[in-house]
Computed example of a mutant assay.
Amino acid sequence: MNSLQFTTESSSNGVIEREFTVGDVPGVLWSPASGADRAPLVLMGHGGGNHKKHPAMAGRARLLVTLCGFHVAVIDAPAHGDRPVTAHDEEEVENLFRARAAGEPEGPIVVRYNDHLAKLAVPEWRATLDALQALTEIGTDGPVGYFGINMGTAIGLPLVAVEPRITAAVFGQHWPDTLAEKAKHITIPIEYDMQWDDEHISREDSLALFDAFASKEKSLHANTGRHKELPRFEADSAVRFFARHLGGAATPPARTDV
């Protein structure tokens, strides 16, 4: 098993930020500067074209750390952030840009490429979870959640489908093509975000993926707006969701500044 190696550490406003590697996979762990010896862990998946320390990741992580006292970890997906890019990656990105410029549907390309990335990333996430749980402040007996939208769903949903240590998840904004069958194996509590006016993912596709989850407890959050207009208050909702299901913290008040 690959061990976790911390490479940098900084602290601000009650949050410790530590970059790490597990094998050749880089990641970042946000933790409370003080608090309980053990705390729940939330794994977060970033969106396509972004990276582990994208402002959306850092902002959501700080909410979970400061309002709930959780640990939050993000790793760079294959071909993202500090990861190497292959010729196949470059070709798929070129295909996407070409379709976008021509006004053609992006979905088939994104679905195909994200499925490829998920096959690589799921084993990396499981190895990272092993390494994180070896840390004294996290341990193997604490609850684990997953939070990922867009490509974070494309990678996270297959991960959650095979990873019994994850007991609650927030997903959203992806096509059902390669994910619906995997969603049928997921029974943990789910919160799912969709944009009602999404120009890329139809309402029917969003509802089909939500419907595929076998979870007895699942909530659909449908907001008006286009694909990139997911309201910031959905991050607050996700914090309250994880506070309910991972325990160890009171339900936080609503926040709209992240």
Rank of each mutant, 00 (worst) to 15 (best):
N2S: 12
S3L: 14
L4N: 04
Q5T: 14
Q5P: 01
F6K: 08
F6A: 07
S10P: 06
S12A: 14
V15T: 14
I16G: 02
F20G: 02
D24Q: 09
V25G: 06
L29F: 07
L29D: 08
W30Q: 07
W30T: 10
G35R: 01
A36E: 14
A36C: 05
D37W: 01
P40K: 10
V42H: 03
L43D: 02
H54L: 10
H54C: 06
M57I: 12
A58S: 09
A58K: 02
A61N: 01
V65G: 05
V65H: 05
T66I: 07
G69K: 03
F70P: 05
H71Q: 10
H71E: 06
V74F: 14
V74Q: 01
I75M: 15
I75T: 15
I75L: 15
D76C: 08
P78Y: 10
P78C: 06
D82L: 15
R83I: 14
R83D: 10
D89W: 00
E91K: 11
E91W: 02
E94P: 04
F97L: 10
R98K: 14
R98M: 10
A101F: 06
G107F: 09
G107V: 15
P108D: 03
P108A: 05
I109R: 08
V110L: 15
V111D: 07
R112C: 01
Y113E: 10
D115N: 05
A118Q: 03
A118M: 04
P123I: 07
E124M: 10
T128E: 04
L129F: 04
D130F: 07
L132A: 02
Q133K: 12
L135Q: 02
T136S: 00
T136A: 00
I138P: 02
P143E: 11
V144M: 08
M151L: 15
M151I: 11
I155M: 13
I155D: 05
G156T: 09
L157D: 09
A161I: 11
R165G: 00
T167W: 07
A169F: 00
A169Y: 00
V170G: 02
F171W: 05
G172W: 03
Q173F: 05
W175H: 03
K182D: 13
A183K: 02
H185K: 11
I186H: 04
E191T: 08
Q195S: 00
W196V: 10
H200A: 04
I201L: 15
S202E: 04
S202K: 03
S206F: 13
L207C: 05
A208V: 12
A212S: 13
F213H: 09
S215P: 03
S215Q: 05
E217F: 10
S219R: 14
H221Y: 14
N223H: 15
T224I: 13
T224C: 12
T224H: 15
R226E: 14
L230D: 06
R232V: 13
A235I: 11
V239N: 11
R240I: 13
F241L: 13
A243Q: 13
H245L: 11
H245P: 04
A250N: 14
A250H: 12
T256Y: 11
